[in-house]
Structures are given as C-alpha cells and as structure tokens.
C-alpha cells in the first residue's frame, strides 16, 4: 500500500515524511498528478494562505486529482489548511475552495487575551467513535497552528472539537475524506497513532 503526499508549495513536508518513515510506510511525494494517481490514498497537507493554496493546487491539476480520489472512494487525509480548503469556501482571501465537503472556513474571533493564531497544544474531544481514532485517549492534546477554523455543514460527521474562545470543529469525515485541523505528524505519540490509523483505514 502506498500513500501519496501532495506537494504544492504548501510549506515544509519533511515532518510528514519523517512520520511515515517512522511508521514504516511507503509514500510518494509529488506535485504531479501523474505520479500520484495510482496511489491507494492521499495525504493533503497545507500551511499558509487558503486562496494561494487553491491557486497552487489548480496550477498543478491537483484539484482534479483530489476530486477523483473522493469520487472513487479512495481515502484522503486533509491536514491543517488541507482540512480547510476541501470545504466550499474560506473567509481567508475570500477563496472559493474545492467543494468536496459542504461547509466553510471562518476566522477565529480571538479577543479576551486569546491570541490568534491559535498556536500550541490543545485538547481535542472526540465526538464519535471511529477506527481513525482507535487507541487514542479521549481529550488527548494535539499541536495546532492556524487562524481560521472549519464549519462543515450539519450533514458532515464531526470527529473532534476543541476550544479557543469558541468551540469549533477540528476534524470531520465525509465518505472517505477525513481531516484534522491540527498537525498529527507533530503531535507526539497520539498524533502518530492518528496517522497510523489513517494508513490502516479500509473504508
């Protein structure tokens, strides 16, 4: 089984590769859809700006690759900005996003001594039971760095939530597309377990 990692100038992917190496899993890192189209699943990472990320994805034809994987029921894991731009739109840069999952992405309100970006470790409450979270204790902490949060439509399964002034969704699932707002690859043993669960997932 091989997992593809989307490379589209979305920040540094060394930590994702290091996590997969540690877990003993094969991967293909590429920005070319031809290199990725035959992988079993995709990891869709992201750091940075939603509108810029969309431009970079489209320029490489990776938006179509993601749509194909979703339509064919092959697993996709969106991480950080990757979890945001699978939705319909984002307030960041007024971006029209991939529309693979109904919903939108809003700016964190902050205020009252709350700093934005939301950066650091925060505990995540799992809102459902699912193989993707198997073996990970409830309310484990994960590492976040983001200024916008996801608001999927009510029809979407919420995997987890956290609190930073408001309670918001930090993971959701639609068919074979799952997301985490935090960085599981930088979140210690609990985060690595989430990555491992995704790699083993056979929906």
């Amino acid at each position: 089984m091989t997992v593809g990692i989307l490379d589209y100038d979305a920040g540094n992917l060394t930590s994702v590769e290091n996590a997969l190496r540690h877990l003993g899993h094969h991967w293909v890192l590429s920005g070319n859809p031809e290199d990725l189209k035959n992988t079993d699943s995709l990891i869709f990472p992201g750091d940075g700006h939603a509108a810029t990320s969309m431009d970079n994805l489209k320029a490489r034809g990776l938006d179509r690759l993601l749509a194909d994987f979703a339509a064919q029921g092959r697993p996709i894991l969106g991480i950080c900005v990757g979890s945001q731009i699978v939705l319909d739109s984002s307030e960041e840069g007024e971006a029209t996003c991939l529309g693979l999952v109904p919903g939108l992405c809003r700016r964190l309100p902050g205020g009252q001594g709350l700093k934005v970006p939301h950066m650091g470790w925060n505990s995540v409450h799992f809102e459902t039971e699912h193989p993707l979270m198997a073996g990970v204790p409830q309310d484990s902490s994960f590492y976040f760095v983001h200024s916008y949060y996801t608001e999927p439509a009510a029809s979407v399964t919420v995997l987890g939530t956290t609190d930073h002034g408001i309670r918001f969704v930090v993971g959701f699932l639609k068919d074979t597309l799952a997301t985490w707002q935090f960085h599981p690859e930088k979140s210690g043993p609990a985060g690595l377990k989430l990555v491992e669960n995704f790699l083993r997932w056979r929906p």
Partner: peptide, 8 residues
Amino acid sequence: VAQRIFIP
C-alpha cells in the same frame, strides 16, 4: 532530531 521526535 527530526527523524526521531514528532513535536515542533
């Protein structure tokens, strides 16, 4: 270090 620890 990056290959052995999985935190920032």
